[in-house]
Amino acid sequence: MQEMLDYECMGARIRYRRKGGGPTLLLLKNEEALPGDTAFIDELAKSFDVIVPDHPGFGLSDTPDWLKGMGDTAYFYLDFIEALKLDKLHVVGCSVGGWIAAEIAVRDCRRIASLSLLAPYGVRKSGVPFGDVFLWTPEESVRKRVCDQTLVDDFMARQKSKEEEAALLKDRYGTARLAWNPRFFNPELQRWLHRIKPPLQTIWGDQDELVPADIFDAWKTGLPDAKNTVIKDCGHLPHFEHPETSAAIVRRFISEVRP
């Protein structure tokens, strides 16, 4: 993976990586990264010029004073897309990253060619609650994300350094800033989903305990043409648990929509 690049936005340093070649793809990450979480990126980089930012307030990016909620994150990315002169952009987002993708597109989708959202937050379905990640222990919060527990055994068994713990906490704080209230959704986004014009697909794990796959129905209400693929034996992180399958579904969708 290429070294970190910097993008300056209103006094804040936002960091991103860029890898591969081909049509440009903006990958918006999930909120709590797990180690070894790069196979999906590597897979996509075989066909695309992949840009992977650390969201403002997450990872190695600054937590800017101007960041008060999801709206600021969405407008930041519109700036970012313009500044990097990205166009005909394929946007892929995982979990909170999927929510961010929708928030960008609902504001301005003129530079976006397609959207692939993996187990996205952002839209809720009455009677289908999200898992309360903020009440779970750190262990539960990792284990409930995946179906195949052996994928995280090493991570859970390993003693974390103080720096590593601080990094995990930063991501958790960043998540709360965007998603504490309303909890992981935005009623405004849900009302205006039809503003999203490019082709949109969702990909869900059938065992998702955080954002149950049934929530696709609510996306479908606002976006009747949205496509959905459910991956079997998969939890909340299809890109982590089934990177090749997930990347293949993204590639196929993009090849269908590309003019």
Binding site: F134, L135, A166, L169, Y173, R177, W180
Partner: peptide, 15 residues
Amino acid sequence: EYLFPPGYTSVRSFQ
């Protein structure tokens, strides 16, 4: 998790 939700204290104070 109940007592110290994210942001209730700074990361440093939390640790």
